[in-house]
Amino acid sequence: MEVILQQLASFSVLIYIVSTMLSMGLKFFPKQFFEPLKDKSLVLKSLAANFVVLPVVTYIILQLIPLQQGLAIGLVLMAAGAGSPFMLKLVQFMKADMAFAVGLMLILSTVTLIYMPLLLSLLIPGVSVNPLSIAGSLLGLIFVPLIVGTVLKLKYTKLAATIQPIFNRLSNIFIFMVVVLYLGLNYQDFITVFGTGALVAALMFVTAAFVVGYLLGGPSKNTRSVLGMGTAIRNSSAAFVVAVTNFSSEYDVMAMIIVVYMLSIILMFIISSSMGRGSKVLEVA
């Protein structure tokens, strides 16, 4: 039964990501994704938050809370990867700048392909990272559906407007399934790390990531919220690829990745829901 649920969880992740990217592509014209990214200062701050400040914060956390080697490696893997498509659903809940969120995710996931192998070779000697493995999953699950959606938007605008809500609802259904299934299947991971300091370290990591992104997100509340979410929700797909390739026998590595990722989803859902309610109150006022 557990094997079936694991397969269903993996399938739900795939459907969620593809339907989300299709929905985003069907909703916006290509130029709308790149328009917010013309602000070079904001782009540089976004890159700095994810690839400079957060790794430094991670190092500080590991100095304050010494973890077992496997747990520490799992945290470093999460710090090295950015650009998770899960941030898009949270940004949607907040009613923030969706076009900027998609553009940001594309930039962060692309930079991750180059950045992750370099950072891990410095911090974890002996680790081999195959950028092509990570690139394959990113291209197939993120870039291709987004491009298909934008092409349909450009050539068949009415059709795109008709089917976009369908994929959006599909995305909503499967994000719910993903959260429920992964919480149910991985609750033992949370229990395992109790008493090791890993849970506290993960909580500090996610909270600090959101704060760093929010503070560097520029003067607009919309972009601050988006960058906060984009920095807090890490690219677990890239982390899993590296973990499976290099640390398949070290359960602690996988456990830490799952704990950080599930904590980030839970905390960011709470924050995005709160911000979303705040937006509705302002609209009513």
Rank of each mutant, 00 (worst) to 15 (best):
A202K: 13
Y214L: 14
Y182K: 08
L154M: 08
I142W: 02
L139H: 04
L138N: 00
S220K: 03
L138W: 00
L141N: 01
P165D: 05
L159N: 02
K155W: 12
V180R: 12
V148A: 10
V148D: 15
G184A: 12
L185R: 02
T150W: 11
T192Y: 01
A202C: 09
I191S: 09
G136Y: 02
D189I: 14
A198F: 01
T157S: 08
T157R: 07
N222K: 04
P219R: 11
S225P: 03
F176L: 03
T192F: 05
N222H: 04
N186Y: 09
L216S: 09
S225N: 14
V193Q: 02
A201W: 12
V144I: 08
K153N: 10
F194W: 14
V193T: 02
R224I: 05
V178Q: 01
Q188T: 06
R224F: 11
Y156D: 13
F205P: 00
I175Y: 02
D189L: 04
V212K: 11
V212D: 11
F194D: 05
L159D: 05
I173Y: 15
R224D: 11
T157W: 13
I142R: 00
V211R: 04
L139W: 05
K153V: 11
V200G: 06
A208K: 07
L139D: 03
T223M: 04
K155A: 13
R224C: 08
F194V: 11
Y156V: 04
G217Y: 02
S137E: 15
V178C: 07
F167H: 05
G197Q: 13
Q164P: 07
I175M: 09
G195H: 11
N222I: 00
F210G: 00
M177H: 13
L216W: 08
M177F: 03
I173T: 09
T196P: 05
V211K: 14
F205K: 12
K221N: 01
V151R: 01
L170V: 15
N222E: 10
G218A: 10
V144H: 02
M177W: 09
T207G: 04
Q164V: 06
I163Y: 05
I166C: 14
A209H: 04
S171A: 03
T207M: 05
I173M: 10
I147Q: 07
T207E: 07
K155M: 07
L215R: 07
I175N: 03
F205L: 12
V178S: 01
